[in-house]
Write a protein that binds this DNA or RNA. Sequence first.
RNA 1: GUCCCCUUCGUCUAGCCCGGCCCAGGACACCGCCCUUUCACGGCGGCGACACCGGUUCAAAUCCGGUAGGGGACGCCA
Length: 467
Amino acid sequence: MSAVRVRFAPSPTGYLHVGGARTALFNWLLARKCGGTFILRIEDTDVERSTRESVDAILQGMEWLGLDWDEGPFYQSDNFPLYKEHVRKLLDAGKAYKCYCTAEELDARRELAMKEGRKPKYDGTCRERGDAPEGAPYVVRFRAPQGGEVAFDDLIKGRIAFPAEELDDLIIQRTDGTPTYNFCVVIDDAVMRITTVIRGDDHVNNTPRQIQLYQALGYPVPQFAHVPMILGSDKARLSKRHGATSVIAYRDMGYLPEALMNYLVRLGWSHGDDEIFSREEMIEKFDIGNVGRSASVFNPEKLNWLNAHYIKTGDPERLADLLLPHLSSRGVSTLNGPRLVDVVTTLQERAQTLEEMADRALFYYSAPTSYDEAALAKFDKDHLTAVYTIVAGKLSTAGEASAAGYDQIFKDICTENGWKMPQVGQPVRIALSGGTQAPGIGEIVQALGRDESIRRILAAAAFLSGE
RNA sequence: GUCCCCUUCGUCUAGCCCGGCCCAGGACACCGCCCUUUCACGGCGGCGACACCGGUUCAAAUCCGGUAGGGGACGCCA
């Protein structure tokens, strides 16, 4: 096991969204690549907004994608005493101080500063304050070192430097005694001995403050890698308005976890011209230094293509299992019908998602109750009747066959009767499925079974004569 | 407003660090043709980009400077 220790630290205020999933993926990839440790930590210091349901939803999303963690999940809410202790330490060392300014005063000053074109940082009212108002509520602020600059070498973006003047005295403990985010991350990452912090680039501005905190606390500063954001089609931050953002929603829409993983890993990262990556390949080829510096737009079309690819090349048995819930939600039971694996096999090249596959599988489990009139109208009634009669007869005398075997039978029927394939295939397809968009007829007959196929052909013939 | 970051086809990106092989390659989408038993799959081809302006150089997508545009942060949220 190498010394590399990374972590994914979501806040449980909602489900696992694709942006978070990609951050988790990059962390996981780096850990797996160098035999490091991947830690899951739940950032629930905001007791108000954190929920158990969100934690479950996040774990569920990670499990579905196969992003397994080596340690955790740890909860920041379990560490309050630890944070308290560190606040004490800073206070005693004079590296932090109590601030009695009220939230209202702060808001007013911030607003005024903005209006006057000044930077809205804390004005330091309580920084050098000597008195301690009796019983007045206070927050604890970090005494940010001024002068010089704070810089770091980001693994993705390169060197980033901030003038120390830009960094103000951030609050590390609220009036109610709870610690704040920027303080907790530092302590947790330090205590968990995280070597590489991979997170969204909306955190780059927090990084210099955190570095000052590491230094004030005497902890080694980890390496940082800030991953660019994922945008919607209008280049605005990806949100529900652009479609689904929840990982689990993608599962429910019929996407395969390997397809989403493959899509996500290629968003912002690439390896030459490669597009398809198995789990093993991404672990082998991933390099955090190759992650792009600019934001990328989430493109559902490409996800569809990848999903179609994995459906086409996937194991039919597994796909059949995964398809089951999509069938049940349509009220379909596969108990009295063709084997689902056979059905799946005929549909693998024709579906981009499991939802689409479920729709296309419907006719296998319930015989058509009506037929595509327009398609039928392309043939005259006598021809249709002749085709149905001859095909039904021929199938009755033939034994069970493979899809290719049935196709041969249809070819024989054509040559024996002087018909062209479309003149036979289309009518039969309509009789079997009700419409024209369906797998090859040999495939359908094989999956449906010879007897059921004959029944449906006869039913179509009866329907015609009944008109 | 201040600070930080970003900028190659509509989209994801290769190339950029180590200038010439790039009048820029791949993929998705789109268009056309082929295959064909419908729908698909597949094959072939097409459309399509170095944000802009200067500089350095024999030579710049690649190096330097500036401009514009976009994004992020500025919270007793994370």
